[in-house]
Amino acid sequence: MTAPRPTSFGPRDLLVVLAMNVLWGLNIIAVKMAVTEIAPLTAGFLRQAMVLLVCGGALRIVPGRMKTLVALGILSGGVFYVAVNLSLAVADNVGALAIAGQLGVPFSMLLAILVFREKIHAARITGIMLAFAGVGLLVFDPAAAKEGPGLALTAIASFIWAVCSLLQRKLIGVPILTIYAWVGLMGSIVMGAMAWTFERDAMLGVGDIRLQSLGWVAFSAIGSSVLGQGAMVWLLQRHPVSTVTPLTLAAPVISVFAAAYWFDSPLGLAMLAGGAIAMLGVAIVTVRTARAGEAK
């Protein structure tokens, strides 16, 4: 992506930022509702099929990038959503999972250090430690501590997300719709195969799924993935990374409080403190990484 032209941050940009954060923040509710009403692997298959339907027109061979596109599609469209959907299917306290989901940022930073030999200084090291410490505090909250399997699956999903973020670095310049077309295609294949193997009755009953249930899947597929990511790309084309990236930090905050309200799940002191500490760590890593990228 080429450096954006300097433009002022106007009302339209703010509306796009607000929409992006709301779409991403409410996505956890949509996915939880989807896996409650539809078998989790089948819901994942339907999600990726919708992404493919929307973005399929942009599916094309990109010379020199196909191994990365296929790998990203399998991981981001398939394996990641196996972990995410199963985590939400087995958990009751969705807010706790939203907090644990922030581990993707420090995982991504640690992988960048190992893979790309990136050098980081005290600020980002502190941010990584705070993010892990904040999530670790969840074990002291009775409502969150009982979500062990869900938290473990969320941590696995966060690690997969971090791997995908490294793969996406190799796809700079590839149109976002083309990327998501491959994610939708490979995700549909992976999720479809797994759902057919482990949830055959649910797959055979896809035609009987209520429109309301499909609506939750559509919100996640189109709203969060296509529109949310599209908004991010649009902003990055107009403003520096160091300006845009920190503006995404509202999404997990929306997720935590929206999930607590929607599912009437408790937000104990330990969970709030852990969430605040984790978000502080994520904010430090995010802002410093964006600034470091701008300085290169």
Rank of each mutant, 00 (worst) to 15 (best):
L185A: 12
M186E: 14
M186I: 14
M186V: 14
G187N: 12
G187E: 14
I189Y: 02
M191T: 01
M191R: 00
G192N: 07
A193M: 10
M194G: 01
M194Q: 08
A195W: 08
A195C: 08
W196Q: 04
T197N: 07
T197E: 05
T197H: 10
F198E: 02
F198T: 07
F198N: 03
F198S: 02
E199G: 05
R200I: 07
D201W: 03
D201V: 13
L204F: 13
L204S: 10
G205R: 09
G205K: 10
G205Q: 14
V206K: 01
G207I: 04
G207W: 03
D208N: 01
R210T: 02
R210L: 05
R210V: 00
Q212F: 01
Q212Y: 01
L214H: 03
W216Y: 13
W216H: 11
V217R: 02
V217S: 02
A218F: 04
A218E: 13
F219V: 07
F219I: 07
S220C: 13
A221Q: 14
I222D: 15
I222S: 15
G223W: 06
G223C: 05
G223P: 05
S224Q: 11
S224A: 15
V226D: 04
L227R: 13
G228K: 12
G228S: 10
G228P: 10
Q229A: 05
V233H: 13
W234A: 15
W234F: 12
L235V: 06
L235D: 10
L235A: 12
L236H: 03
L236R: 03
Q237H: 15
R238E: 07
H239C: 05
P240M: 04
P240D: 11
P240Y: 09
V241Q: 05
V241E: 07
V241S: 04
S242T: 09
T243H: 11
V244P: 01
P246Q: 11
P246K: 12
T248W: 01
T248L: 10
A251V: 07
A251G: 06
P252R: 11
P252A: 06
P252W: 09
V253M: 02
V253N: 00
V253I: 08
I254A: 04
S255W: 00
S255F: 01
S255E: 00
V256T: 03
V256P: 03
F257S: 02
F257M: 03
A258P: 04
A258Q: 06
A258N: 06
A258R: 10
A259D: 00
A260R: 06
A260D: 10
W262M: 14
W262F: 14
W262Y: 13
F263R: 12
F263D: 08
F263C: 08
D264K: 13
P266W: 09
L267D: 15
G268Y: 02
L269F: 15
L269C: 00
L269N: 03
A270I: 04
A270G: 00
A270Q: 04
A270N: 02
A273L: 11
A273C: 10
A273N: 03
G274W: 01
A276I: 13
I277T: 09
I277D: 08
I277M: 14
I277C: 11
A278K: 09
A278I: 11
M279N: 07
M279C: 09
L280W: 03
V282M: 12
A283D: 09
A283N: 09
I284D: 05
